[in-house]
Every structure is written in structure tokens, then in C-alpha cells.
Simulated assay, not measured.
Amino acid sequence: MTAPTEAPPALASTAWLAPGPLPARRGLALLAWGLAQPLIGLRVVVREPALLRAAARPVLLFAGFCVLVAFIAEDDAAGRLEVFLTTLVTLAPAPVILFGKTYRRLAAAARVPLGLSPRTAEMPRLWTAIGDAARQAVLLAIGLVPVWLAFELVQAFWPDAADGFVWIAWAVGGFWALHWIVVEALDNGHTVDPAAAKETALVPVDPWFVRLWQFPLLRRCSGLLRRLSRPWRRELELVARYPELALGLGLGVAAMIAVPFVALVFRPAAVVAAVHVLGRVEQAAAPPQ
């Protein structure tokens, strides 16, 4: 009788990159699980030809447009490269809006390869996507106002501490930006279950950043933040329920989309990662059969 063979080391080393349920433990286990999701999304996109074709379309179209602009604007290679990079950086946010429907279809197509039940794509209108992008920009700006005010006060009353406070300001600003990277990624991963009953309205629970502004002199700002953040109530509720998961997912996605063109290449992986996170969270919250 022969002894059972062990799994090849290559398979064992990549087992953590396979789609799977939420870890039973919170804390570092959930943080690591969230951090691995963009790599899982990338692996699924690369291994599935249909997903890879859908992911390549926005990259080729946007890169082709930037190349066309460069060839029209300049005659020499150095000038064309400069125009290409300038166009790429300037229009970096545009693909998220222009190719929104492509990413939504990708999210629906990724569910079965991720081991989830099939669903259809959630298709917001173009003007809705533009409005959401504007809302997020305003939310980011308003959220940084307290940091700017605190820095001005420190600089006015404790100038010796201003240099040290700059690092705190950068950390707070980075955390705020990371928060919305997670929210946007999760928003792109939503799909529609045609067999399910119509989704009931969520109880209007204020996000944590709205509660921070509920002081007598700042309540108008808290009301504005509440209205602006209403489209992402589902995502904000998930972030509040699983902060370790959100932090890990945010760090992983941010590492992939930090550079403009690299962000375009790896954004499909972030979308697929969000689909997997949402699907596994729904499974964990479902009552046992």
C-alpha cells in the first residue's frame, strides 16, 4: 500500500490565492484575507479568457487614444512620449466613468469563476456615474478640512511642532483617501440577483465621519456629508462591520492603482476582488440552511 502523495509545493504555496469563504477569526486573519483579494482577483482574471478579454478592452482603447493624441500633437519621439504621459495622467480618472459598464459586466461575469452564484450586471447611467465621481471629490475635500484647520492652528500657536504635525496630517489624509478607495471598489463589485426579492430600503444609519461632524457649529456640514454619502450606504455599512477586511482590501487595491496607467491595467483585478468580498460577506451573513 503506497503512502498518499503530498500536494506539490507550488500548489500549496498558492492555496491562499484561491477564492474561499471569510476566515472564521477576526483581526489579523481578516486583514490578511482582505489584503490577498486583489491578487486573487488578478489571478482569476488572468486564468479566465473571457474575463481577460473584457479587462483588456478598456486598457487598449484608452492607451490607443493617448497614443493618437501624442502622434497628432508632436512630431518627435521625445515630444510624443511627453504628450502621451501627460494625457495619461490628466485623463486618469476618465476610464472609471467611461468604461463603467464594462467593469459592471466584468463583475457579473466573475461571480461563477469565483465560486459564487450567477447574477446580472448592475448598470447605473452615465450621468449617475459622473455625479457619483463629483460627490466623492467633494467628500474627499470636506473630509480634509479639519486636517487643514488643525494644521493652521498648530502653525499659529505651536510653530515648533508644525513640522512633526505634517506627518500626522499626511497619515490622516492617506487614511481618508484609502477609505474611499475601498468604498469605490466595493461599489464597482455590486451585481443584481434577478431571483431575489426587491431590496428593501436600508435604515439610515449615519457613517462614522458624519457623526464626527455633529457639533453645534458643524451640523450643517454633517448634513451635507450625509446627503453626499447616501449612494454608498451599503459599502459604508460593510466597512463599519469589517474594518480589518476593509483596511486589507484598501491597502491591496491602493498598491495596484497607485500609478495611473498601472491603475487602468489592474483595475479589473480590483473589481473582481470586490465581487469576491461582497459574495463571501453575503454568504457569511446568510442564515444557515
Rank of each mutant, 00 (worst) to 15 (best):
P58E: 01
L39F: 12
R57F: 15
R43V: 11
F62R: 13
G64T: 02
L60A: 06
F65E: 12
R57S: 14
P58T: 00
R43M: 07
E74V: 03
A63G: 07
A63D: 08
R80G: 02
P58G: 00
L51A: 00
P49K: 01
V69K: 01
G41H: 10
A55W: 08
V59H: 15
P49W: 05
R80P: 06
A56T: 04
A73C: 13
I72M: 10
L42E: 01
L52R: 11
D75M: 06
G79S: 01
G64E: 03
A78D: 00
D76M: 03
A56D: 07
A70Y: 07
E74G: 05
V44S: 12
P58L: 00
P58Q: 00
G79M: 01
L61A: 14
C66L: 06
V46C: 02
L52C: 10
G64L: 02
F62K: 12
R80Y: 12
A50M: 13
I72R: 14
V46H: 06
R53H: 09
F65C: 11
I72H: 13
C66D: 11
V44E: 10
F62L: 14
G41L: 11
G79T: 05
L61P: 09
D76N: 01
A70T: 05
P58C: 00
L52H: 14
L51N: 00
F62P: 15
L51M: 02
R47S: 08
C66A: 09
